[in-house]
């Protein structure tokens, strides 16, 4: 092999950089987020339940919101029937955020932890913006 030394050093540097996200977090314990549901509207609910069950919402809320978006905007269908047979208005701002009015302690706590940055809020108003202005 020609230039074996150079190639091996290069490979080592490459692997080091590529695996940076893995080893940089080693030994640092980061608390798993605990999204809060302590909002006035949720507090008043006799039985605390979301549009669908908690497990479904945790794992699938992004797909659900995407479907709602297409149904409401593209098909003009604004009513969602959930597994319990209840009808819900398909609206991020008016349904989801009506209960979860604590965006920073609910949405953001997990999204920041997972390093995702959904662009919903580039257009949709946060509960704070709805109340106080853009």
């Amino acid at each position: 092999m020609y230039d074996a030394n150079k190639i091996l050093i290069g490979l080592a540097i490459f692997l080091g950089l590529m695996t940076y996200p893995v080893w940089s977090g080693l030994g640092r314990a980061v608390q798993a987020p605990k999204p809060e549901i302590d909002t006035p509207i949720i507090q008043k609910m006799p039985e605390k339940k979301c549009v669908e069950n908690t497990h479904f919402m945790k794992t699938t809320h992004m797909q659900l919101i995407n479907e709602w978006r297409d149904d409401a905007l593209r098909k003009g269908e604004r009513e969602y029937t959930n597994a319990r047979g209840e009808k819900v208005l398909m609206s991020l701002q008016l349904t989801c955020m009506n209960c979860h009015s604590n965006k920073d302690k609910f949405c953001d706590s997990c999204h920041n932890y997972a390093g995702v940055n959904p662009y919903c809020w580039d257009c949709h108003l946060t509960p704070k913006q709805m109340k106080e202005g853009i």
Partner: peptide, 29 residues
């Protein structure tokens, strides 16, 4: 839009998209 009169129940748009009159679909519905 900052500090201007606004509709809290309607979104804004983002940079880099085209927009126009929507015949108030959010109202006629």
């Amino acid at each position: 839009l900052e500090g201007k009169p606004y509709n809290p129940n309607f979104p804004t748009r983002m940079r880099g998209v085209v927009e126009k009159c929507n015949f108030c679909v959010e109202r006629i519905w």
